[in-house]
Design a protein around this nucleic acid. Structure first.
Length: 582
RNA sequence: GCGCCUGUAGCUCAGGGGAUAGAGUGCUGGCCUCCGAAGCCAGAUGUCACAGGUUCAAAUCCUGUCAGGCGCGCCA
């Protein structure tokens, strides 16, 4: 509906330019908005106020010209001038009825558009290190990324969803070490366990699996560990020395077996958890594969050739400060190891080379310092950094009652996403995560989520859906007639305030979807659905649907079927189920 | 110290140049012989952190101050 009004205004402005010889710029976008107040009609535009100065007219005078030159439309009842120069559009009854018919015809396609036709977008999200189960903080990025991907798809973009697996680097060594040490405990006498290794119980579980499979095959290396290692002061150094020793004494092959087993198990767990939340990926992209294919080395030599690298203190630095970064960054450490940043450059270049028009990353807010350097690298490689769009998700801070829950992956002291879903349910978790703007800090109170689980906003919306299903069941049970074609002919019988309000809310849905996708703000869908559900519940309590008068009844049924469809479609974008019974 | 995010009702948050600033929750009081009461209806609540500025118009944009979160490694 909004695009229709925009076109009418465009045509009017065109007409005015030709006949009135008024001059004003044509590049000012025409904004048409839903009004907040019913007295202001259905839609309004402030265009006259924006153009008045250029045209040398008072806003209200220009508004009058615009209104006088509007082409007639069967969808518009009238256009008024109000306040300082707003043009208010009152839609015809016919316009609202047409929307109900549209929804019936389009079904689960209602709300889709071709705004992004032909545009390929990669959305990368979650991408946590496979060193432990997902925790509640990760859940937010997961729910948000999935919803953004769904939104874009709904608007016609060709979307691919990707999880970047950081399966290389020191963290993976610490993981292997942690598992091995727990494994030793199963083989023989207790063994010290470094504070900085991964403490979680899942490490013991993986170790137990290894022991079951391989018995004590990996235990001999224990006796070759230097005794003094347990007394080292620097705990980070201790880890590195331990890792070196384990690799040496265990041998590369056995070491890889342990590491692989640990990573596979953890990734399997992550994947399962995400799938149970209805979150899926087209690709799981391995960081290691970037090294194996030589892409990391390629990137480094490309940067080298263009003079973007230099040696200092034994390390290789990238001149990111040339591209707005506050300092240069290391890509190869003095020990010859490539940094995480090095593989990240290769990864992003690879994304670009796969031909996406747009590359979206959903990152935790703690990574914001990375944005500049990644864009710097892309620019240095001759790519357009603006194709990369980074969406930051602020932290979810967990509370139990009023006390903050401290979380650390290494200490194993954290609440997992699985715990959360078990407590509040997957639908509630997904909905809760996206009911806030992503750049808003999220206070997640577990006690509250638990104690109020039945008051959770998602149930309110799902309940509206289930109620409609229930009414339709009753319709069948009572063998009452409902002919969709005839129902759509009789929509003018719907004159109750609730009915009129709902008929004004339903056509907003495609507009909300469009706006939410463009601004990457799925919370707009959540708020819209709550509004719609509120209107339905009010309607339900004030009117009977299953009445004797056939025509009237059918019109009402047609309306609530349309509501049900929009609720379904909206919840689907958020990844929340729409149960027929609760 | 520098950078990013945030400050709106008791609490959790929408609104992010436009008309009288809104929801949920909580509180008080009503509504089931009636299609599902996980619902509905009614009632009270604001220094939009503070101070300047920009303009026809500022909760919204700019500057500064205060407060909170996060980041600023040859970690990932």
């Amino acid at each position: 509906m909004r695009p229709h009004i925009t076109r009418l205004i465009e045509q009017s402005l065109f007409e005015i330019r030709n006949t009135q010889s008024l001059h004003f710029p044509s590049d000012i976008p025409i904004v048409v908005e839903r009004t907040r107040d019913r007295a202001h009609g259905d839609l309004a535009s402030n265009i006259a106020m924006l153009l008045a100065k250029h045209a040398g007219l008072k806003p209200r005078d220009l508004a009058r010209y615009i209104v006088e030159n509007l082409p007639t439309s069967e969808l518009v009842e009238k256009a008024d001038i109000a306040g300082p120069g707003f043009i208010n559009f009152f839609l015809s009854e016919r316009a609202n009825h047409r929307v109900i018919a549209d929804i019936h015809v389009a079904g689960d396609q209602y709300g889709r558009s071709d705004a992004g036709a032909g545009i390929r977008i990669l959305v990368e999200y979650v991408s946590t290190n496979p060193t432990g189960p997902l925790h509640v903080g990760h859940g937010r990025g997961a729910a948000y990324g999935a919803a953004v991907a769904n939104l874009l798809e709904t608007c016609g973009y060709q979307v691919e969803r990707e999880y970047y697996v950081n399966d290389a680097g020191r963290q993976m060594d610490i993981l292997a070490l942690s598992v091995w040490l727990r494994y030793l405990e199963l083989c023989g006498p207790p063994c010290p366990f470094p504070q900085k290794a991964y403490q979680g119980d899942y490490i013991r579980a993986i170790a137990a699996g290894l022991f079951e499979h391989y018995q004590d095959r990996f235990s001999a290396a224990r006796s070759r560990l230097p005794e003094g290692i347990w007394q080292m002061d620097d705990l980070e150094d201790q880890l590195d020395v331990l890792i070196d020793n384990v690799i040496t004494h265990l041998g590369d092959t056995d070491y890889r077996v342990i590491q692989r087993a640990a990573m596979d198990e953890i990734l399997r767990d992550i994947r399962e958890e995400l799938e149970s939340m209805n979150i899926r990926f087209d690709h799981w992209f391995s960081e290691t594969s970037l090294f194996e294919s030589g892409k990391v080395d390629n990137c480094i030599s490309k940067l080298e050739q263009t003079g973007e690298l230099y040696l200092e203190d034994g390390a290789t630095w990238f001149r990111s400060s040339r591209y707005g970064d506050e300092k240069d960054r290391v890509v190869v450490r003095d020990n010859g190891q490539k940094t995480y940043f090095a593989s990240d450059i290769a990864y992003h270049l690879d994304k670009y080379e796969r031909g996406f028009n747009r590359v979206i990353n959903v990152w935790g807010a703690d990574h914001h310092g990375y944005i500049t350097r990644v864009k710097a690298a892309l620019q240095a490689l001759g790519q357009d950094p603006d194709r990369l769009e980074i969406l930051l998700v602020q932290f979810a801070v967990l509370y139990r009652g009023s006390t903050k829950v401290q979380m650390s992956t290494r200490s194993g002291n954290y609440v997992t996403l699985r715990d959360l879903c078990d407590e509040v349910g997957k639908d509630a978790a997904r909905f809760f995560y996206v009911t806030r703007r992503s750049e808003q800090h999220l206070d997640f109170d577990l006690e509250l989520a638990k104690s109020q689980s039945s008051d959770n906003p998602v149930y309110y919306i799902q309940y509206a859906h289930a109620r409609i299903c229930s009414v339709l069941d009753q319709l069948q049970t009572r063998r009452m007639e409902y002919l969709p074609e005839r129902a759509l002919e009789n929509l003018s019988l719907l004159r109750e305030p609730h009915e009129l309000a709902i008929m004004r809310t339903l056509p907003r849905y495609p507009e909300v979807v469009n706006d939410a996708a463009e601004s990457r703000e799925p919370h707009q869908i959540a708020f819209y659905l709550r509004d719609l559900a509120t209107e339905f519940h009010g309607y339900y309590n004030s009117q009977q649907f299953l009445i004797e008068d056939t025509c009237h009844r059918e019109a009402r049924i047609a309306l609530i079927i349309a509501i049900r469809q929009v609720i379904r479609n909206g919840l689907a974008i958020l990844g929340v189920s729409a149960p027929e019974q609760m």
